[in-house]
């Protein structure tokens, strides 16, 4: 059980500006701006849930993950994960969690992967029996047996990521934080990683919190998404509900040589460039063919395309809707 209540975090950032005069001034006095990274963030995640945590860069995703994993202390608010407050009982808390940072390795670079695993066993004080069992299971499901004796630096990105995930599960954590686990992977590796995470969740009931920019990850893995923007939780719901809500909207892109487009109920201009314009069409108000008729009535249209909502576009339309 993960419970966040009213989490707020503000950072102080030094302001730097160009020019000789400003630089000299900054030598004596430096100005700071306060950046509110998280504003009153609250949510609850039940045991065994898989949650996708999405939002644009700088929205506050990694701050939230850092708070939940005990790396960062919030200014106010409470966070209780399986009975622990991460920043208060750090050591007790981190025994129960696994963290994968997609961009940073936790393996020892120059030695075979198996050595890293054994060192992790000692760091987490995993009993020998449990370690053996976990190691065997992970090696089998992630197909690691071939690469266990290879130094980490010689692994491909996909192989390394599989090892990273195994490394963070050796101690049987109840909660797994995945920060962009598929970044930079090829299609085959991505599918393997997703498949493994799903299986882990199903068979061990591991709670998974996933941040990613890859919407296919979200589609493949999570039923629930949390959308964060400018430090606030904007949306908390199932992917399906979102899709239904946004399935009503189509995007029509028009290329034209001359003419104008009349205003009409249910048609919202999105972008306009010379010879090219795009519109969001609310299918509750008018049908796509009606919209096309309206748009082509007064203009010489050379090309036209209608797009539905993929997960990718869903997110784009969400970002547009919330202006983030």
């Amino acid at each position: 059980m993960i419970e966040l209540q009213g989490i707020t975090k503000t950072f102080r950032v030094a302001r730097r500006s160009g020019g000789m005069k400003e630089a000299v001034k900054a030598l004596f006095r430096r100005e700071y701006t306060l950046v509110q990274a998280l504003k009153d963030v609250s949510f609850t995640i039940g045991d065994g849930e898989m949650v996708g945590y999405i939002g644009p860069n700088g929205a506050g995703k990694s701050s939230t993950i850092k708070i939940m994993s005990g790396i960062l202390t919030p200014d106010s608010g409470t966070c209780v994960i399986n009975g622990c407050t991460p920043w208060k009982d750090r050591k007790r808390h981190v025994k129960n969690i696994g963290v994968v940072f997609g961009q940073r390795s936790q393996l020892w670079w120059d030695v075979p992967v198996i050595d890293s695993f054994e060192l992790l066993r000692d760091i987490y004080r995993v009993p020998e029996g449990t370690y053996k069992r976990n190691c065997e299971e992970l090696c089998e499901t992630l197909e690691l047996s071939e690469i266990l004796r290879t130094p980490a630096r010689q692994l491909s990105l996909g192989q390394r990521m599989r090892c990273e995930i195994a490394a963070s599960l050796l101690h049987d954590p109840e909660v797994l934080f995945l920060d962009e686990p598929t970044i930079g992977l090829d299609a085959v590796s991505k599918i393997a990683v997703r498949e493994f995470i799903r299986r882990r969740n199903r068979e061990h009931g591991t709670t998974v919190i996933l941040t990613t920019h890859d919407m296919q990850d979200i589609e493949a893995l999570t039923e629930r998404i949390l959308l964060i923007g400018k430090g606030e939780i904007l949306l908390d719901g199932s992917l399906e509900a979102l899709r239904q809500r946004h399935a009503k909207v189509r995007k029509i892109t028009v290329e034209y040589s001359s003419g104008t487009f009349p205003e009409a109920a249910g048609i919202t201009p999105l972008e306009a460039a010379p010879g090219r314009a795009s519109f969001a069409v609310d299918t509750d108000v008018l049908s796509v063919s009606q919209a096309i008729a309206v748009l082509t009535g007064n203009a010489e249209v050379t090309d036209l395309s209608v797009q539905g909502a993929s997960a990718e576009e869903l997110v784009v339309s969400l970002y547009e809707e919330f202006h983030i």
Partner: peptide, 8 residues
């Protein structure tokens, strides 16, 4: 030079 100044 400016870069140097920034790091007072």
């Amino acid at each position: 030079f400016l870069g140097g100044l920034q790091y007072r």
